[in-house]
Write a protein that binds this DNA or RNA. Structure first.
Lengths: 351, 351
DNA sequence: TGAGGTTGTTGGAACGTTTCAATCGGTTGT
DNA sequence: ACAACCGATTGAAACGTTCCAACAACCTCA
């Protein structure tokens, strides 16, 4: 910047003004400075700006799994909201490992980010509370929280679980499995809880929900879960499975059809998230839809509001409602008429 | 840091030494400083470090599409290589839009990142050349380049295209389509080129390759492509399609089976990338496998080498070889025995 | 005893910005 | 003719680190 100033024959302060408050400086001076910038190929040093400003223009987004399209969609929403406000999102992948989550939080705090959007791995929020207490705004994503320390944006996972299970019950299923894990993930626990509520509401025994616990929520774990379901003796085998997310559901679908079972006739499947691949599976996958991009967008807006308002900020708790997206993988009866009549051949089988 | 120094009764320099070269400082002083750090909840200011150091510990990774699992896998490889070297990867999504790519490059340069890993949108490398000339190492990812300005890590896409098309020809197909676009993406153009080479090598007319050009490489574009293929009169319709990536192929698969056509009997499909979802599709998708994580890892290592060696760095050009991953979506004949005997029922149909 | 080492600590300059009070011509109003 | 004001520019003080030459205290050996 010093070089630019010298070349344009002005002082450092003027160059800074051209960069930050161009209207303050006379048009011809401004032009001279801009020319010098061009000629020298000058590029602002963001570190120095941040150091001076005390805060960066970056927002941290810590997700459980980047290879899960759900999170990339959330990230997408966050990114566009941030871009509209001149900020950037730094995407960090904890991979459901608490140590990585911690590492990334340290890193983000050292960078003095504007704030952190996070879907925490566990339920121990002490690190986050410290972060918030030291002045970095935190917003919980895809996870409600009654804490007074931050905003949160969530989807009603209990309701989602209830919707999914009710749908299966309504389709005539009585032996239903729940695949998902670890149960320490609040999303998983709540979806499961919703399912048991639906069973109870239908006069069935909630304890009869068959748990297929998985180490994580990936395609591979889904394949393993599918194998485990098929390994159950037929008389006892669930006729339907509710998976804690679509990755799992797609894995189950693959394992099960790979072994010659028919979906939904032999096993009905419903997932959760309604990622794009769900509809694209060749037995189109029923799922519970969440407003993925809106989650990211809303969380970012809450965060920026807090970062700017500093004092006069009221923490808020936003809860979206999930919706059923019914497709072939869970439909045993003739497909109910929906507004847009579906094209495919309706399944006639019934159990 | 000043507060820490005061509390521990030492000078600023000593605190810095505790943080950066702990072995230089006497054990008890060190402990006193560490205690003070804990008590005050001190967190290093990364901006100040960077300003002083002149360079950050961040690596920029600019990809074409974060929602494409191929790139998240590349990112994963890059991330772990970076982590081993105490660096972090900042993931940026250009979404195939040149303006966004430019914005992100500006941003990364302002941050004085250690270097930039990029799969460029177009073929205009002038912005990158400027970046490299000003001293930021650049590594081209998934794109070969003979430029003397940077390293590159690529996969031989021409070979990949040849493999895919040869396989289809060998399966008896004569009317073959290529779905992909825009052709300005080098990946797309080269995969297509490989396919025409394969046709020529088999004594077929390379010009007979039927182009289904798509605006981008997404699931949605694939569905549209599938519809366009089925709209072709049956006598003239291709019996096989080679898709420029798996997202496209999965889209085609969905559209085609949704309209009652059978895969591979009515239309054989082969994709590219071999993402996890490919094997998980219910007609498991044949594909061309690329070493996704290795690409990211190798690129990062080249980058870090350049960033460190500064002077004595030789630009290198790494080219991986792709492999066929044959699955049901392209197999008309009895499945050839592979080392691990496949479980499913073999297809008996033949054309 | 004093020269030379070793070990641990210190003070201050530098990194590249932003910000703000101060300054400087030049008008304008009275 | 003087005060008051205006817009444009300047100079210097931060911001929080790292780095390095210098120093102090102590030890060792001739």
């Amino acid at each position: 910047m010093k070089d630019v100033a010298r070349r344009a024959g002005v002082s450092l302060g003027t160059v800074s003004n051209v960069l930050n408050r161009p209207d303050l400086v006379a048009p011809d001076t401004r032009q001279r400075v801009l020319d010098a910038i061009d000629a020298l190929g000058f590029v602002r040093n963001e570190s120095a700006r941040q150091l001076r400003a005390g805060r960066s223009r970056t927002i941290g987004l810590v997700v459980l799994d980047v290879s899960n399209p759900f999170f990339t969609d959330v990230a997408h929403g966050a990114e566009s909201a941030a871009a509209e406000n001149g900020s950037v999102v730094m995407l960090c992948n904890s991979g459901q490992r608490p140590e990585w989550e911690g590492r990334y939080l340290d890193l983000l705090e050292e960078q003095r980010v504007q704030g952190v959007l996070i879907t925490p791995v566990g339920t121990d929020y002490s690190r986050l509370e410290l972060l918030a207490a030291r002045g970095t705004p935190v917003v919980l994503v895809d996870r409600g929280s009654d804490s007074a320390n931050w905003c949160s944006v969530a989807v009603d996972d209990i309701l989602g679980g209830r919707l999914a299970a009710s749908h299966l019950i309504e389709q005539g299923h009585r032996r239903i499995a729940f695949a998902g894990g670890p149960l320490s993930l609040r999303q998983v626990a709540e979806r499961r809880l919703g399912a048991t509520e639906a069973l109870a509401a239908a006069g069935l025994d909630p304890a009869a929900l068959r748990d297929i616990e998985t180490p994580a929520l990936t395609l591979g774990d889904g394949r393993a879960a599918g194998d485990r379901i098929l390994d159950i003796a037929e008389a006892d085998r669930p006729t339907a499975v509710f998976c804690a997310n679509d990755l799992l559901a797609l894995g189950v679908l693959q394992a099960v059809t790979g072994r010659g079972a028919r979906v939904p006739r032999d096993l009905a499947i419903i997932g959760y998230d309604d990622i794009d691949f769900a509809a694209a599976a060749t037995v189109p996958l029923s799922s519970v839809r969440q407003p993925r991009e809106s989650i990211g967008r809303t969380a970012t807006e809450l965060l920026l509001d807090e970062a700017r308002a500093a004092a006069g900020h009221q923490h808020r708790r936003v809860i979206f409602k999930p919706e059923l997206a019914i497709r072939a993988s869970s439909l045993l009866r003739r497909r109910p008429r929906s507004s847009a009549a579906p094209r495919g051949r309706a399944q006639a089988a019934n159990d």
